[in-house]
Amino acid sequence: MSNDSRPLQILAFAGSLRRNSYNHRLLQTAALAAPEDMQLTVYDSIADVPLFNEDLEAESGGGTPGVHRLRAAVATADALLIATPEYNQSLPGVLKNTIDWLSRPAAEGKDVLAGKPVAIVGATPGAWGTRLAQAQLRHALTATGSLVLPAPMLFVRDAAHVYDADSGHYDAATQKRLRAVLEALQRWVRQLHASAG
């Protein structure tokens, strides 16, 4: 388990392939809002993860290079932060596909999502704040054995009105809410590590 004297390593990724999506921007803002003893790294390469196919998995020895890179990054992180959009009142296919790949055991037999703490956030220009997508992602991650942070939750709605294009970040209120999520994740990871001995 991790050494409590070092910063927690949080791997963050968005369930969107668009570089400047509201959820990528939300993660960039989260990096600013993170507590001092937390290092948040935004992973921008889920586009390198192909559609899940057991034939491809078998032929490639457990996954393509893009899958192996992501799996290794998840394995070394203390926790994950996932920002999801909501498409047609549902979880984005690209994000579900990423979770499906990560749920498969690596060549050495390790399942990188089992027991991994995860916090979920989401932003949308719409009025619902990704509630349905987050619920579906929470359900999928529970099936993988991930430890999903129960609260606080963050549903950013009307994202175009709370994102400041000049600064490149969300407004102060959203930053405050992001920090609350990250502080709760930090406490929870520390507690999990302490209970594991």
Rank of each mutant, 00 (worst) to 15 (best):
S2T: 07
D4E: 15
S5F: 12
P7A: 06
L8P: 13
F13A: 09
A14R: 01
G15T: 06
S16L: 07
L17D: 04
R19W: 11
N20P: 12
S21R: 05
S21V: 01
Y22N: 15
L27N: 09
L27W: 02
Q28S: 14
Q28H: 15
A34K: 12
A34T: 02
E36I: 09
E36Y: 09
M38Q: 14
Q39V: 08
L40H: 06
D44E: 15
I46A: 04
A47P: 03
A47W: 03
V49C: 07
P50D: 01
L51S: 14
F52S: 12
D55T: 11
L56W: 10
G61F: 05
G63T: 10
G63W: 00
T64G: 04
T64W: 11
G66N: 04
R69H: 08
L70Q: 04
R71W: 01
R71G: 05
A72C: 02
A73L: 00
V74L: 01
A77E: 02
T84W: 07
P85T: 04
Y87K: 13
Y87V: 03
Q89E: 14
L91S: 01
L91D: 15
P92E: 04
L95R: 13
T98D: 04
T98A: 06
D100G: 08
L102F: 01
A106P: 03
A107L: 12
D111Y: 13
L113W: 00
G115W: 07
P125D: 00
G126K: 08
A127L: 13
A133G: 14
Q134P: 03
L137K: 03
R138D: 12
R138Y: 10
H139G: 12
T142W: 12
T142K: 14
L147E: 09
L147M: 11
V148K: 01
P150E: 07
P150D: 09
A151H: 09
P152S: 07
L154V: 04
L154T: 07
V156T: 10
D158V: 07
A160Q: 14
A160E: 11
Y163G: 05
S167N: 03
H169E: 05
T174E: 15
R177K: 15
A180S: 14
L185M: 04
Q186T: 14
Q186M: 09
V189K: 02
Q191W: 14
H193S: 15
H193T: 15
G197L: 08
